[in-house]
């Protein structure tokens, strides 16, 4: 009886939310997409016309049509793919290593109060350091290959995952822990069934940022000194004052990051499916 009551209440709540959403939106999804496309075309069109009329300097702001032509050349000739491949390798390695280190140290410090207090000032110091200044020293330590970029990306990813893990484990609801202990959970059970899932929610919520940072680390590292990668391709174009190439590199990176973001969204929705919709 109360079960039915509950379902009815939920249904009403859902319907109410649906009504609110429809009212709030005003314009349908499809129409909004059309408007967004129109806005993009207008901006690009004005840019193109301004450039052709001489109002915008084509050297600093190359025509959109020229940028797309360069993108097409890079893609159709296959020039960009080896560079993309290197950048992706560096990003994935930076993410995996940084996340693993962050998770490990986060759990350790959250469960061992002594270590937390011991390490705290040092971690704060390293976190306060603007990470870009590490790139030159990593270049000297690890050379021009992918490992200097990976190391750079790791320093970016690590701190995000670390602090989120620390907060996630410390912030576990006391009642959940007490309940699990009353049901007979040992420390290893608590870790596996309570602390890890709780910390993972924090880490997944920061997944967009940490994945973005992994890519940022790779590209910035390549820009400062490399022999391959999208950042290197952009630096090369800049070196010969080829602004079209710089913009083309930016555009390709943008598309790649968007695709990665969509994939991360899918993954997040699957892994956090137990969470109430926001």
């Amino acid at each position: 009886m109360s079960a039915q009551g509950g379902t009815t209440r939920d249904d009403t709540a859902l319907q109410a939310a649906g009504v609110r959403r429809r009212q709030g939106r005003g314009v349908s999804n499809l129409a909004m997409r059309g408007l967004q496309l129109l806005l993009a075309l207008v901006v690009l069109g004005l840019w193109e016309l301004g450039g052709r009329a001489g109002l915008i300097d084509q050297f600093f702001f190359p025509l959109p049509s020229d940028i797309f032509a360069t993108v097409w050349t890079w893609v159709s000739s296959g020039y960009v793919f080896p560079h993309l491949w290197v950048t992706m390798q560096e990003s994935v390695l930076a993410f995996v290593i940084g996340a693993a280190l962050g998770l490990f140290l986060g759990f350790l410090l959250a469960r061992v109060r002594f270590l937390d207090r011991l390490f705290d000032p040092f971690l704060q110091m390293f976190n306060a350091l603007p990470r870009v200044v590490l790139a030159p020293i990593f270049l000297l330590w690890f050379g021009l290959g992918i490992w200097s970029k990976v190391a750079f990306g790791v320093t970016l990813v690590f701190f995000i995952v670390f602090f989120n893990t620390l907060e996630g484990v410390k912030g576990v609801d006391r009642v959940l822990v007490d309940n699990a202990r009353m049901l007979g959970a040992k420390e290893s059970h608590l870790l596996r069934h309570v602390f890890v899932p709780s910390a993972l929610t924090w880490i997944f919520s920061s997944l967009h940022i940490s994945v973005g940072f992994a890519i940022t680390g790779a590209v910035v590292g390549e820009y400062l000194g490399a022999s391959a990668g999208v950042g290197y391709a952009i630096a090369q174009a800049q070196g010969v004052f080829d602004t079209r190439g710089v913009f083309a590199g930016m555009f390709i990176l943008m598309v790649v990051v968007l695709v990665v973001d969509v994939l991360v969204n899918r993954l997040e929705r699957y892994l956090l499916r137990w969470r109430p919709a926001r």
């Binding site: 202990r181 009353m182 309570v194």
Partner: peptide, 20 residues
């Protein structure tokens, strides 16, 4: 330590939200 002969029902929700 924890009383192994007892179960506990809490005032707050104590179900693990990530488990079915």
């Amino acid at each position: 330590g924890v009383n192994r002969r007892a179960s506990y029902m809490f005032q707050q929700d104590a179900l693990l939200p990530w488990k079915t």
